[in-house]
């Protein structure tokens, strides 16, 4: 599995740390259910999934990677900072 980092180009999976599903962080005062959903519950699809990967051995960017969990095909890669994942204010 190779991921094309928008800044560094195509790199081996070993350069990246996997965080998990790319979810929008609830705001600080949100209730327990919102945090439970964010921290624990997962749609866990067998198919395309938006994920967060960290280019640990490269440019240290967080990436939003769309990947097919059934085939491991990388469908799209975007800088997380440009993907609106900064969290609710």
């Amino acid at each position: 599995m190779r991921i094309t980092c928008p800044l560094c180009g195509e790199r081996d999976r070993r350069e990246f740390y996997y965080k998990g599903a790319a979810l929008v962080r609830p705001a600080e005062g949100e209730d327990l259910d919102a945090w439970h959903q964010y921290v624990n519950l997962r749609e866990n699809p067998a198919g395309p999934l938006d994920e967060l990967w960290y280019h640990e051995m490269g440019c240290n960017s967080w990436l939003k990677v769309t990947r097919n969990t059934a085939t491991h095909e990388i469908l799209a890669v975007q800088l997380a900072s440009e993907a609106g994942l900064g969290g609710q204010k």
Partner: peptide, 13 residues
């Protein structure tokens, strides 16, 4: 392998 997968196969690392 430490990533979500239903592929029933892993990667070389």
């Amino acid at each position: 392998d430490f990533y979500s997968s239903y592929a029933a196969r892993g990667n070389l690392p």
